[in-house]
Amino acid sequence: MKTIAANGGHTMRRRFLRASLALATSPILPARSANPPLHIGLTPVFLDDQVRFLARLRAWLERRLDRPVVFVQRGNYREVLDLVRGGKIDFAWVCGYPYVRYQRELLLVAVPVWRGRPVYQSYLIVPAGDRKTTNLLELRDKVFAYSDPDSNSGFLYPQYRLVMAGENAATFFSRTFFTWAHRKVIEAVGVGLADGGAVDGYVWATLAEINPRITGTTRVVERSSDFGHTPFVARRDISTAEFDRFRALLIDMPADPEGAQLLHELRLDGFVAGTPAMFDGIARMAARVGRA
């Protein structure tokens, strides 16, 4: 199935590109009611709380795809994943961890390129006032903030880290809690609600550029090794045409001035098609933590 998607996508791409270019130059937008809307699930793997940005992104997608686009946001990763796994939505921007977990039920569409590479890290952060802590293991019996139980950087990696250190991840901290968003992990650590937290390095770094006041209240203590960046996935039974068209749109995004602008605001360089092998590291960690 993956192969089909990859091959089919290549030939179809040019056709759709031409069509979409024609549409983009057309002054009058076609009646969208003719096409059923495309449902895209979003999760806080990026700064999904910027409503105005999302509106522009959606408008751009609608124009380029020539059909209505509906963004679906939920309080946690799981709900979005359930929707895409159940075929209720067409695409979703999720984390590598749920992707490897439900790899058989999902199609990999594209992987973001950040700072030139399709990878990111998990950051361990502590309050800025904490000058002593140097690694995760020093946070024993402290309060720790995870972002989402289905997040790689915000949950799986610190769990793995503890397991590898021979600790019981369930009892290592005195208290843990989920904030359901990376940005909120940063806030929780910043105000001192938690003594430490695990956060998506890409989100932290982007926020540090956009709103350094928030990240300034935290200090990065550890950076993980590279993991495959948070992928766009599609429901398994999506049509090849839709799949290819969406993948092509993402990959060609830097070439479009407006798309480039949107990418810049996300602090991303672009998207690559990506391979499931990019997430092998996450899969190994998940397997190791699962055995623990």
């Binding site: 208290r175 105000v191 938690a194």
Partner: peptide
């Protein structure tokens, strides 16, 4: 459980 001044009244 939680406090408005978490540094002075840490969780737990």
């Amino acid at each position: 459980f939680v406090s408005s001044r978490p540094r002075e009244f840490p969780i737990g």
